[in-house]
């Protein structure tokens, strides 16, 4: 037994110590999710408008241009399931909240985490926000238990070399918005087709009832609290709209319209808006920083201002 303990001390224990040190160090590293939480909770009681959705609104709506205190709570590949978790968790602690912009796009209703290569994002929601996993399929994934595996070897070693003083949240502003520069990059038709083909691999029509239920539940919770939800689809490049599967697009728009009508809320679809040119986009479906300014001004003028007027006629 003594022999075994000695072997353990020599061959395994140093590795365990190293892993423990790195895992602890990585916990302190700021990432987009931990930073989002800090930024959101800093002024939680003051936010009047909340923006929810995936990377399209994250890069496409700048709350600084909205005529009320707003926060962009969207993130890359954020599904309606996590939008719902945010609403359920935070709106009871947001007394000033008046409106929530629920961004839905071509993929939102058919979004299936079981098919997504970015399923690992759910481990960040669990670790930093305490949200449940969207799919039990990944309950035993090693990335759920180890930040080393979640960040990957190269990134972990880079962070460890700098004694975990670096951070991984490069693009997020204090209002939660992540501006993207380099307009016109990857907006051509072949890139757009590639992008749409990739998105199709993560979409599943059988997910529509589940995602629709999440959307209905979000709307119900918000209305119960007296907050006005509004559904918005962001502009996308013309190459992207051409590459879309028309049947899927029609199904998505019909379902969103039905949910909007039955809930008595408005749906504003800017997907085919002619006011946006190639220069407004970073890639096929994401607005660049100038496009985001352009769009947020339109959104503020056409949707948010009139909406806020109804909540505060004075």
């Amino acid at each position: 037994m003594k022999n075994l303990a000695k072997s353990f001390l020599i061959y395994v224990f140093p590795i365990l110590l190293l892993v423990l040190w790195i895992e602890t160090g990585l916990l302190a590293v700021r990432n987009s999710y931990s930073q989002k939480k800090i930024l959101l909770e800093q002024h939680l009681a003051e936010h009047e408008v909340l923006i929810l959705g995936n990377s399209l609104p994250w890069h496409g709506i700048n709350p600084g241009l909205i005529s009320a205190r707003a926060f962009n709570l969207s993130m890359v590949s954020q599904s309606l399931f996590y939008d719902l978790q945010f609403i359920a968790r935070y709106t009871p602690r947001m007394p000033a909240l008046k409106a929530v912009v629920l961004c839905v796009d071509y993929t939102s209703l058919e979004d299936d985490i079981n098919l997504s290569p970015e399923y690992w994002r759910s481990f960040f929601y669990e670790r930093f926000f305490g949200f449940p996993l969207e799919s039990e399929k990944f309950a035993w994934d090693i990335m759920r238990f180890s930040l080393i595996k979640l960040y990957g070897g190269d990134e972990t070693l880079r962070l460890a070399r700098n004694l975990f003083r670096d951070h991984l949240d490069y693009e997020q502003l204090e209002n939660g918005f992540a501006p993207r520069i380099n307009p016109g990059y990857l907006t051509n038709e072949s890139e757009a087709r590639k992008r749409v083909n990739f998105l199709h691999t993560c979409m599943n029509s059988s997910a529509i009832p589940r995602n629709s239920a999440h959307l209905r539940e979000i709307i119900r919770l918000l209305r119960a609290k007296g907050v006005i939800p509004v559904l918005v689809s962001l502009p996308v490049s013309s190459g992207y709209t051409l590459a879309l599967d028309q049947k899927k697009l029609q199904k998505m728009q019909e379902t969103i319209q039905t949910i909007a009508t039955e809930s008595g809320i408005s749906y504003h679809n800017y997907m085919f808006d002619q006011r946006f040119a190639t220069e407004d986009f970073f890639d096929a479906d994401h607005l660049a920083v100038n496009g985001a300014i352009h769009f947020t001004n339109i959104l503020n003028l056409e949707v948010i201002k009139p909406l806020l007027k109804t909540t505060n006629p004075d």
Binding site: I10, Y11, V12, P14, I15, V19, D141, I142, M143, I148, K149, G152, G153, D154, T156, L157
Partner: peptide, 21 residues
Amino acid sequence: VKAGFSYICFLLLIFYGAEGT
């Protein structure tokens, strides 16, 4: 030598082992 072997295997597995099962 045994420790060297063990550390190299463990470290390559931990940092560069393929993601996913």
